[in-house]
Nucleic acid binder design. Sequence first.
DNA 1: GCAAATTAATGATTTATTCAAG
DNA 2: CTTGAATAAATCATTAATTTGC
Lengths: 175, 175
Amino acid sequence: MEEGMSGFVVKPRGGGGGGATKCGRWNPTAEQVKVLTELFRSGLRTPSTDQIQKISSQLSFYGKIESKNVFYWFQNHKARERQKRRRIVVEDDENVDILRQDKVSVSSTKHFGEVNQVFEPGRVMETLQLFPLNEPESEKLRFFTNECKENASITYAFGTRMDDHPPLDLCLSFL
Amino acid sequence: MEEGMSGFVVKPRGGGGGGATKCGRWNPTAEQVKVLTELFRSGLRTPSTDQIQKISSQLSFYGKIESKNVFYWFQNHKARERQKRRRIVVEDDENVDILRQDKVSVSSTKHFGEVNQVFEPGRVMETLQLFPLNEPESEKLRFFTNECKENASITYAFGTRMDDHPPLDLCLSFL
DNA sequence: GCAAATTAATGATTTATTCAAG
DNA sequence: CTTGAATAAATCATTAATTTGC
């Protein structure tokens, strides 16, 4: 971090090891994490309140724990596993350039990771307003042209990158 | 992985949807899906014929597409979002199949379908079956006690070895 | 070896969605 | 159309790992 903007250095983990009398955040033991992980691996993702209480009760054997800790653990673990998965898959490298251009300048240290899509709410809002939702609603004619444009199938080559398409913001404003 | 069976390879999504010289089904590009998803996310559910044509027209920039594809996409996406939502409540599962590294054998259809949980036999299976998934759905009270159990913080001594805890197998069977 | 300084993990909150009841 | 329930995404905040200079 460059300049510590606010700086109040929070201090010391004072209590030192033993009796953390402070009500800081939950710090799970290895055994607790092990059990939670195994439950997750077994398929449990969003335990019910009752399950949470049972789990918490059992895990309290290994150390201090509350129900909410279990709840949060599953929420976070689920989200982060998914995040990890998605990152590995790397859909398309189309938005890599977006990431690399200007995102970096903002923050040098913190979160880069997420976010490929930086949609501004305002933009979307505008777009939404452009929908003629109250349009006469032409009796749902559901049979669109059944044409097969196959004839022109070679119009785009694989070599030509699609990367120079307008950003999604623009894409959404056409309606 | 198990793509060999059926014999026809599904094209990668980012391929531009172009290769198909056959008039098979529409294969949306990543960009197309992205825009459609964003439109959906912005509130569009059942676009009018006119909207469909505009959308289709714009999306044709990214690859072959027809109006009916847009129509079907919205219909399917709407239905599947609802389905997913309902399934989460019931099963609390989403991509467990992905997590499973072996024995996956997702026989029939792919994800989103029926999540045939093919967990490996034995203990884990039992454990899973013990989950009271059909539990009364106790209004999900998400506000757990905000208490700080600090008072009773010494209920367990650190000196006591945790090693004599029951094996993980037992730990998982308590639910 | 040791702490201060820095970075990476992850616990805890907040915000934005979704569907569907009213 | 509004709102309630539920949750996932995004974010904030604190702790552990680690790096670094001595």
